[in-house]
Amino acid sequence: MELAKKANSVIDSHAKVKRGLKIKKIFSNYQLYLFLLPALIYFIVFHYLPMYGILIAFKDFVATKGIMGSPWVGFKHFGRFFESFQFWTLIKNTLGLSVVQLIVGFPLPIFLALMLNQIRSEKYKRFVQTVVYAPHFISVVVLAGMIFVFFSNNGLINNIILLFGGDPISFMAKPEWFKPLYIASGVWQETGWAAIIYLAALAGVSPELHEAAVMDGANKWQRIFHVDIPAIMPTAVILLILSVGGIMNIGFEKAYLLQTPMNQPSAEIIPTYVYKMGLQQAQYSFAAAVGLFNAVINLILLIAVNKFAKKLSGTGLW
């Protein structure tokens, strides 16, 4: 009895000391909290406040009444979007563009990295790397501008087509050319840059593994398959999860620039639609609802893919 009391009081005072230590720890680190403050305010104001602002998707937002003062309308805007004649076109365009981009764009950096890794001359390798990374730094406006001048009716590509005896194509006016142009230009711009991360993984492969494989009579081709590819697998899985999770997050910027009045039927995707409805036509609530729909699908995809990948390969984001 006496002992238990004693023990209790010891535990009690111990907890008190601990709590005291915690507070002391926070106080002695107050400068670190000040360091954190600007970023914290930034995330609250420009990320969490907009999350609260999503409420307007369930309201008829009137600027003068503010978010709280505007009347609730439930799922009215979502219903309008689902029933609009553009709904399925938008879904098809958005998903079509990003799925093809993923299928084409995901494996290419891996191939490039494997190839670069096998180059014997260090100088040549470094030269190729420097060149293929460069397009990453071209702005999206310049990239779109390049597409417009190259694929115009009298542009470089049509000149090449003529050279081989073909008929010129007015690429920018044809809806069916929007997707190939979008994806090919993305491959041209980003493949080199995306290969860096795989090259880093390949550089981490122990040379002993390769030496052992050589001793066993493996040629380069076999070493790529049995040493290099397993080495970059975890990186590839993580990147795959991230890109599948972001599948509806296809960039607004390039699609918007590549739109012409003629290719609209295939070039209109959810983000450009949100921009036009929301900011050009000031239908804030409706556009916010469309944007929210997109964001929620994305989040669900990300969680699902992460779960799936974890089960399959043991690697996941969290």
Binding site: K25, M51, Y52, Y284
Partner: peptide, 28 residues
């Protein structure tokens, strides 16, 4: 030794996966 660093980290990371979107950000 920064007390609460995981909470802050979580707050920051969350914004990578979910955002308010174009219109609410514009309104802010």
């Amino acid at each position: 030794d920064l007390y609460g660093r995981n909470v802050f980290m979580f707050l920051f990371l969350m914004t990578m996966f979910f955002s308010g979107g174009l219109i609410p950000t514009y309104l802010v």
